[in-house]
Write a protein that binds this DNA or RNA. Structure first.
Lengths: 230, 230
DNA sequence: GAGTACGAAATCGTATACGAAGAGCATGCG
DNA sequence: CGCATGCTCTTCGTATACGATTTCGTACTC
């Protein structure tokens, strides 16, 4: 280890975050400071700090004198997150695409082909992992770290939701793989950044729309940013 | 007061944030926990929490075993912030514009006219305040609170920078007022959200470009998202 | 039997105290 | 005279302790 000692606050932050993202702590889960503290073998103060940071990222909700709970049960929250992510991820992809070389594209395509192979007997976890890998390649060259940070936060929120409330929409996976390929073709052709951005954004909005169509009793609280009509 | 007792952590957060945004603590300022604690008449623990939250918002930089400093001296950081803000604020404005009524537009126009009147004998502080008011009207109806939160964070960062390092570019103020009017016309005409979004984004990018052109020795580290060529 | 009020337990909020890690300064050596 | 080394002082990091607030259970009353 180069970084031999990591602050306990940092440890607590990473540990709790991981548990949320991995779905061990599901939305609504009550985070009791003292319990987490003893679990991790630290005091409550670092845990408080960790929770606060997670609150700032939107992963937990904190209520005064009551405590912290893992946030994000609400379908409305899902829509908010997806829309926001469509915007920042679209921008990140648009900015990054210009800087991708052939090797990057080849890597992305390879991942997408693995996703295609997954379609036969569908494993949501593996598919999700590959999906994240694919998109990471697409926006990894984004030169603006602030935007990348926002994208990462969005992904974390989604990861927290994924394992509990929100399930895959049948048929969406196949469309998704095809849209990925279209994106790669656009990038290969050296399309305008704005065009790539738009396509990447639309890709995510399509996933949101697919969810909204199949989710019973969920009203659409947002207009899905332009292109409502094809 | 309806909310008679506010947690001290909350107090500390608000107090420090205000000092940063108002330019009392300027970028590079060293935030010593104990000093702030005694200043506010509280203990260090709430102050730590406050600092951590501000760190998550990007207003302060925290270094282990060293301490916190108000962040954002770097011109590069300014570019990152402006670009990110162009994206999220553009999106917020695009989503909000559809929901504006005539009264909203009239309000915005009134503010912009006051900005125009300011041009004669220029008062940066007043101009900035009006500018913020103008844009707030434009994106206040944005139905996605996550996006609004990101916009607010961007503004806070800019406010922190404004009062110190980054000054107004001569002539930019007049262009800005004109672009505002153009935006209002677009909205009145019921333009496509995407078009309004693009215009709002471009408005901010123009400010960034104006800064980059006049700032000596500052290299442009980012391609300013599409429309590089007019 | 249902609703309300009181009390106990659980949990959060903050203060204080002490240990640890860096930064700066002085001193000694080359 | 310059550089390295060690010490001290500042400041952060965490633990423990205690007070404040909420919640839940129980008992009492209507």
């Amino acid at each position: 280890m180069t970084e031999a000692t990591e602050s306990k606050s940092q440890q607590a932050y990473a540990a709790v975050k991981q548990r949320i993202v991995h779905g061990i702590y599901t939305p609504g889960y009550r985070l009791v400071l003292a319990t987490i503290a003893t679990d991790l073998g630290v005091s409550v103060v670092p845990v408080r700090e960790a929770i606060r940071r997670l609150e700032a990222e939107g992963l937990v909700t904190f209520e005064r004198n009551v405590g912290a709970t893992v946030s994000g049960i609400d379908p409305t929250e899902y829509q908010y997150t997806m829309q926001t992510l469509s915007i920042v991820e679209g921008a990140a992809t648009g900015l990054s695409a210009q800087l991708m070389d052939k090797a990057d594209i080849a890597r992305a395509r390879a991942v997408n082909n693995r996703m295609r192979n997954c379609l036969a007997d569908f494993d949501p976890l593996q598919f999700t992992a590959l999906n994240q890998e694919f998109h990471s390649i697409l926006f990894e060259h984004c030169p603006n770290p602030h935007i990348l940070d926002l994208v990462q936060r969005g992904w974390n929120r989604l990861a927290a939701l994924r394992s509990s409330t929100f399930r895959f929409v049948p048929g969406r996976a196949r469309d998704s793989v095809n849209e990925h390929e279209n994106l790669l073709v656009l990038i290969e052709r050296g399309a305008e950044p704005a065009q790539i951005e738009q396509a990447a954004r639309q890709h995510r909005i399509a996933t949101l729309d697919a969810y909204l169509r199949q989710a019973p009793g969920t009203q659409k609280t947002l207009s899905t940013t332009s292109k409502d009509k094809q």
